[in-house]
Design a protein around this nucleic acid. Structure first.
Length: 649
RNA sequence: CGGGGUGUGGCGCAGUUGGCUAGCGCACCUGCUUUGGGAGCAGGGGGUCCCCGGUUCGAGUCCGGGCACCCCGACCA
């Protein structure tokens, strides 16, 4: 295999006259295809000797190894691709970071992959630091495992299922609770082995109904997922806090600035306590509720508000009123000369075949995550018009009075329970009722908070106005409890000889999404501004006037010295205009740029440019070529400081 | 799954009521000249016009059906 590879990569086939093996047409022919395409892989890019450079640029030195920008796979474009929506997506397409292959499915080209690899390295360090053991679980798993946990039925189309040639059912794992519990139950028998944390960095597939914004929301993605097992909920809780802290370190180290942790919904993962780590950004898909006063912060799916519904209105009698053709809250209240605060909105759902009607005051919106939890209705979907009859109601005129609680689940928001004299639907066409008072006109049903928090609602902690923000979820942590260990029969021997199920936590980070979030947060119109910690290339050498032997030699010498000193610079010695070269360099986004030119080389210096969000004071504008590598290394160490903790905890 | 939009070389686009060999800019290749923020001249290569069917002497263009991708919504462990 090894010898074959060398032969195919054909280092010796670099032709004197011109192109490197990667571009050349005469490289070894692929035996399989016979089409004469050079068989290459990205790895080869960093080891292949480059071409001599066009137009008589200096020939390569024998034995020298370069990473030349013309060998860097990924075409950099002057125009914005039309499908790009967010700034980060646009720059990653323009810079040749990613290539879309289908809806929500991308190849990561070398630049993106290098940044992701840097993110992964940081994640590994921090997971190892909290005692994690890395392993690798498969992309697929048999249906039986998911039937054991109950999620084979509980999860919808998002879980991709398929059968093999012998008609056995499998899934593409969208998460790995089932698989990791299987691994753990086969390997952990004793309390002595607990606590235990296992993690992997692996591909997930979720058949999202809609992907968007490049790597921000995709169907196939790389995720770091970690799972911990504990003897007691207290131990889980303590460990959960440790991972929480590790996550803060990770997001700081990858250079994300505006990340907050918020309380979140546990959704179909189950469990009790959960937090999400959100990059706060207007392009985010989640709505966050925060209180600057108390520090309260939560996903809108679970956020609470301390609303007050005081009213001194006298209860009015319940009365039928004709409202021909008036269906919406706006229409009905306008027709009756009232307002949305005096109306009761009914939103109709189905949970499988079970009708679920949610009642909120007219000026609020139903929060489906809250409703799902309150009504124990995991499969909530909007009710179709033709399903209203079975629920005993009429679209546009649905109201709480007169429905059969045996057939219909009724959920009332506090805003309805505590507000007097509401306008409600009469459950017959063209009729409403006024003067509805919960308690007098309606008993029973489920009473719960099922509304969205709105801007300015009082904070549950401080009572001050809440603010709404948007965010991208880049990580989450859950306390799962014993849901999976119990369902899948994972037991261990306690000290006293009894059999017990461990309690479990799980902890995810989207690797590609984190990398893409960095670009969303840190860029200008010319390209990403990479944090030094995850920049695909930390140093780029730009050699202007590369046809001049002396200048090119100086640039190449610097390149070799930097490499020898353990750095991995990118060398651009193309015979192109300075503007062209700098524009490309901006798209690559190396934080440190060394510029070699006639006047710099004559002065015995490399000119320094920095692509850094907040450059520290006193960065050198040039460095002497003498001892350049050491100086650059020191500079890099200095620039890395904001992304490390320097032993300070 | 609903609503809207787009499919023409690697990217961005033009292509009239159906009519000549399908065009433009960028990118790419060759040569020369240039070289500090996307250079100039000359020459050159690259296209199943998303797919299938139909109408027609003739279809990128008209008709029917499909597919893909994007946006908004529904959905989202």
């Amino acid at each position: 295999m090894e010898s074959r590879k060398e032969e195919v990569l054909g280092f010796d086939s670099v032709r004197k006259s011109g192109h490197g093996a990667l571009r050349g047409q005469s490289v070894a022919t692929s035996r399989r295809t016979g089409q004469g395409q050079p068989l290459t892989r990205p790895r080869a890019l960093s080891t292949v000797c480059p071409r001599a450079g066009r137009n008589g640029a200096p020939p390569r030195r024998s034995g020298a190894l370069f990473v030349l920008i013309e060998h860097l796979l990924g075409k950099r474009l002057p125009d914005d691709p039309k499908d790009a929506q967010t700034p980060g997506h646009r720059l990653m397409l323009r810079g040749g970071y990613i290539r879309q292959i289908g809806q929500g499915i991308y190849s990561l080209l070398p630049l993106a992959w290098r940044a992701c690899a840097a993110v992964e390295a940081i994640v590994r360090e921090e997971m190892n630091a909290v005692g994690g053991q890395e392993l690798l679980m498969p992309v697929t798993s048999p249906a039986e495992l998911w039937q054991e946990s109950g999620r084979w039925d509980a999860i919808g189309d998002e879980l991709v299922r398929f059968t093999d040639r012998t008609d056995h059912s499998y899934v593409l794992n969208m998460t790995h609770e089932e698989v990791v519990v299987d691994v753990a139950r086969g390997n952990i028998d004793s309390y002595r082995q607990l606590p235990c944390m296992l993690y992997q960095i692996q591909t997930k597939f979720r058949d999202e109904p809609r992907s968007r914004a490049g790597l921000i929301r995709v169907r196939e993605f790389t995720m770091k997922d970690a799972y911990s097992f504990h003897r007691t909920p207290e131990d889980l809780d303590a460990y959960y806090k440790k991972v929480h802290h590790a996550y803060e370190r990770i997001f700081r180290r990858v250079g994300l600035r505006d990340v907050i942790d918020i309380e979140s919904d546990t959704g179909m993962m189950g469990g009790s306590v959960a937090h999400e780590f959100m990059l706060v950004t207007p392009i985010g898909e989640d709505t966050l509720v925060v209180c600057p006063e108390s520090g309260y912060r939560a996903n809108r799916e679970v956020a609470a508000a301390a609303r007050v519904y005081a009213s001194d209105e006298e209860p009015q009698p319940l009365r039928d009123v004709e409202t021909p053709g008036q269906k919406t809250i706006d229409e009905v209240t306008a027709f009756l000369g009232s307002d949305a605060r005096h109306a009761c909105k009914c939103v109709a759902f189905m949970n499988g075949t079970q009708p679920v009607l949610a009642f909120v005051r007219g000026d609020f919106e139903v929060n489906q995550a809250k409703l799902r939890k309150a009504a124990s209705a995991p499969d909530l979907r909007a009710m179709q018009e033709e399903e209203f009859a079975a629920a005993g109601s009429v679209p546009g005129y649905a109201g709480p009075v007169g429905l059969d609680p045996e057939k219909v689940v009724l959920v009332f928001d506090e805003s309805v329970v505590k507000s007097p004299n509401l306008i409600v639907g009469a459950n017959r066409r063209d009729w409403h009722r006024t003067g509805f008072n919960f308690g007098r006109d309606m008993q029973g049903g489920i009473v719960a908070d099922i509304t969205d928090v709105v801007e300015g609602d009082p904070c549950p902690l401080s009572g001050k106005p809440l603010e709404l923000k948007r965010g991208i979820e880049i990580g989450n942590i859950f306390q799962l409890g014993d849901k999976y260990t119990k369902a899948m029969g994972f037991q261990y021997n306690e000290e006293d000889g009894t059999l017990r199920e461990p309690v479990m936590g799980c902890y995810g980070i989207g690797i590609g999404r984190t990398m893409a979030s960095v670009v969303e947060e840190s860029h200008d119109e010319n390209g990403p501004i990479w944090p030094v910690s995850i920049a695909p290339y930390k140093v780029q050498i730009c050699c202007l006037q590369a046809k001049n032997e002396e200048i090119a030699d100086a640039a190449r010498k610097a390149y070799e010295e930097l490499r020898a000193a353990g750095m991995d610079p990118l060398l651009d010695a193309r015979s192109v205009g300075a503007g062209f070269m700098f524009a490309d360099a901006d798209l690559v986004g190396a934080p440190i740029r060394l510029i070699f030119s006639k006047r710099n080389v004559a002065a015995g210096v490399a000119e320094m440019r920095y692509r850094i969000a907040a450059p520290p004071e006193g960065l050198p504008a040039e460095l002497p070529l003498e001892g350049l590598a050491d100086k650059v290394r020191e500079l890099l160490a200095q620039l890395m400081r904001p992304y490390t903790f320097d032993g300070v905890e």
